[in-house]
């Protein structure tokens, strides 16, 4: 079984039973985040690296206290980095934090190198530069990138453990804006390597966006705002779990071709006619 037919997802050193990776940001409370993680069925959550507060430290509450190390693998990200140097620095800090911490996830990273604060779109040159350094440094790198097939090929060649094209800008909820670009990326990256993981990261707004993305043949979905920002985040986490599974199953099952005209489901023969 490879990623094409298996219901679980193999990326770098890890095998994920759920193809949904969820974020930990923007929740009204850490308790709500925990409930949403539970409802999502995910085994993998992303976290960001930031300066520790020296005073007024949330009365000692750390986000890790709300993430069960037996249940979840942590995927540290380099969110908020705008250069290759910043990405490498933050990735190493994330690894150091997880080393010997009792949590899994020290050996991989979600590389995010952004171009500007308005679009939060990935900056391709810095992304590739940072990837090369991190690969040399022994990281398994999941690369957040734009849906440009040539860039995705270069990133794979440079040793990315997974390619994660944006469906649309981070937090925009616009879904997968260019499904054909994703199709071409899948074809190019998987033609001689069917198990190579391609994940849609960013832009998912609601369950149908996740299902549609999975139906295209991608290996997983990474999302945060769609759940954390929903009116009922726990219900949306349930919805995303089912949408990801439904989309995956539909992809494996193989949809019928689209046709312009009708095809009857009931037999013509034996109709009661005059």
């Amino acid at each position: 079984m490879n990623n094409l037919t298996s219901l679980s997802l193999k990326i770098g050193p890890y095998s994920l039973a759920s193809r949904l990776i969820v974020g930990t940001g923007k929740y009204a409370s850490l308790e709500l985040m925990q409930q949403c993680h539970d409802a999502s069925g995910s085994n993998c959550v992303t976290v960001a690296v930031r300066r520790e507060r020296l005073v007024d430290k949330n009365s000692g509450r750390n986000i890790l206290d709300f993430i069960d190390p037996k249940r979840y693998i942590l995927l540290p990200n380099t969110a908020g980095c705008f250069s290759a140097d910043e990405v490498v620095r933050v990735a190493r800090l994330g690894r150091e934090m997880l080393t010997g911490s009792g949590y899994r996830g020290a050996d991989w990273v979600k590389l995010e190198c952004l171009g500007d604060t308005k679009t939060l779109l990935p900056e391709p040159i810095g992304t590739l530069e940072a990837l090369k350094v991190l690969v040399k440094d022994g990281f398994q790198v999941l690369v957040y990138c734009s849906d440009d097939v040539m860039l995705c090929k270069r990133l794979k060649e440079a040793g990315a453990a997974a390619i994660m094209p944006a469906g649309s800008p981070i937090g925009s909820g616009q879904g997968v804006l260019n499904p054909n670009a994703i199709r071409i990326i899948l074809e190019e990256l998987k033609q001689s390597d069917p198990g190579y993981p391609v994940i849609v990261d960013a832009g998912v707004g609601t369950a149908s966006d996740a299902a549609l993305a999975m139906e295209l043949g991608i290996d997983g979905v990474l999302l945060n705002t769609a759940i954390a920002g929903a009116r009922d985040p726990v219900a949306m986490a349930h919805a995303m779990r089912h949408a990801t599974e439904a989309g995956r199953l539909a992809c494996v099952a193989g949809r019928i071709p689209r046709k312009l005209y009708a095809t009857a489901s009931s037999p013509w023969e034996g109709r009661v006619t005059a």
Binding site: G23, T24, G25, K26, Y27, M33, T46, V47, A48, V49, R50, R51, E52, L54, N62, I63, L64, L74, P76, N77, A79, L93, G94, M97, I170, G171, A202, L222, L223, N224, T225
Partner: peptide
């Protein structure tokens, strides 16, 4: 000195 921790993110 930089002291960092994990916070919520996506």
């Amino acid at each position: 000195i930089e002291i960092v921790t994990f916070v919520g993110g996506g």
